[in-house]
Write a protein that binds this DNA or RNA. Sequence first.
RNA 1: GCGCCUGUAGCUCAGCUGGAUAGAGCAACUGCCUUCUAAGCAGUGGGUCAGGAGUUCGAAUCUCUUCAGGCGCGCCA
Length: 580
Amino acid sequence: MIDTLNEEISKFLSSFLNTEDEKLSLIEKKYSSTITDDLDKGHITSNVCMIAGSILKKNPKEIADALVEWLKKTDNFHEIESAGPGFINVTLKRSDFVATVHKINEDSKKFGESDYGKDKSIQIEFVSANPTGPLHVGHGRGAAYGDAIGRILSSSGYKVQKEYYINDAGRQMDILTASVFARIFESELDNFFPKNAYKGSYISEIAMAFRDKNNCNLETDGHALIKDLPEDEEKEIDELILRIKNTYEAWPKIKSFALDEVLKTIKEDLESFNVTFDNWYSESSLGSLDDKNSKIKKAIDTLITSKLAYEDNGAIWLDTSKSGDDKNRVLIRDDGRATYFASDVAYHKDKIDRGFDKLINVWGADHHGYIKRIEASIEGLGFDKEKLDVQLVQFANLFKDGSRVKMSTRSGDFYSLADLIGEIGTGASRFYYLSKQADQHLDFDLDLAKADSKENIFYYIQYAHARICSLLRKYTDSHGSMPENASAISGGSYYNCDELIHGMSKYPHVVLRASISLQPHLIIYYLKDFAHSFHSFYNDNQVLTESKENIDSIIFCLNAAKIVIANGLKLLGIEPIEKM
RNA sequence: GCGCCUGUAGCUCAGCUGGAUAGAGCAACUGCCUUCUAAGCAGUGGGUCAGGAGUUCGAAUCUCUUCAGGCGCGCCA
């Protein structure tokens, strides 16, 4: 019905105000009609008269009075009032108001969807954690966020692809391999373990699994491998990697085995976190600089041809400062190896080449200094940098028993995402990760997530859903099938559901707003408010002792309320609970 | 030093592209379970929206500035 109001406002503006088109379109652009916060102000409200008053230098209240007269003549609405400094408050006809409930029941799972992003494709790249170990709680927030905006954008009509970029080409992979190697041949190496290797217990598990499936024979002298290694931890591991590669031919076999095992764990963790990807993109598929036809070589050649990349001091640099970066960045080191940045340039080129209308990168906030140079490379390759939208996710601090949970990947033992899911469940985990705007620091309180009080908003919302389910069960137990209309409400004899219906009518607007702003937390706060309306209703009304007509109408309405809560939770990747 | 983020009730946070008396929960105090799930509801008290200036019909929201806190500034990934 907001559309109807806006159409009438358009007609009013052009015929009544009699002013030039330029000003009219400015008014049209700036004003907004919204669903009211409370029923005292009717169902819909518009600030159009104040905007018009300001642009046309006229008294807003006079315009409002004229608009009220105009709208009254159309007979589209039950009641129209001007209020305050020049708001227009509209009360809908009972039938239009109740139509919301019918629409929700009909649309059911599709209620809240729109075609806002129709014909546009968006790719979201997120998590993309190095495949060197299981996901930890730091990755959880990006995972929940990327997946949620994927769901939200899909529901707004966008064609969405979710992608995980696997960093399987760099030094990290060698360190992973060396770590596993050292565990496999622990005894041959006199229990030596490199200082900079991955120390988690998963490394030993991978080593054991490898030993079970392969004949492991070191063949060379283990003592020689570890003799006189450099003291410096970085140099130590690099030297060890070099020696193993030169003497142990099964190195690639361990490497691919370790990668597969780690990826398997990551996929399992994500799956139990209700996060799925449409595509897993391997960094190594970008090829090597030695291959003329590889993606990485071609991307860099393009930059060299356009003179944005140049040689200096034996290295190849990209002129990123031209696009606002602090300094220029190295693409190819003086020893001929590509940097991580070079891979990323080629990767982003490939993403754009794949034809998406928009790319969203979900990055940890610590990478924000990296945005400029990626944008610069996109411009350098001749693309519009606006195609890329980097969404930063701040770290989440976990609190347990009142104090901060430490997580350190180096020491080996850390609080993993799987631990979190095991402790509070997927739903509550996702919920709290998403409960605050992504680019702001989040204190994640594990004790709160498990608490059984109103303070725990997750269960507060789920409880509303479960209570409705319980009523619906009791209704169908005695009545057989579900009611199909709300005659008592539309007829105007029963008003107690009005606040709930009014709340439900906001839902599609909330979803759209979350979609445009990429902010899932808006849905959480909406659901919290809506759950409150329900609990309040539930307390004031003894549903099942009402008259038959009233019961039917209430149940029809509550089924709609259940749909709204369930749809909202599903957009967050959370399964609604039917019984608590 | 430069860049990004943040500062709203005692605590944890909402507050949509500027809109009507700034909202929740917790904590404090009061009520409501022989009736559909009390993980619930209703009420009371609690605010210089960090400080200052500006933009205008109107600012927590936009601009500038001061103060305070967090993070990032590699031929690492």
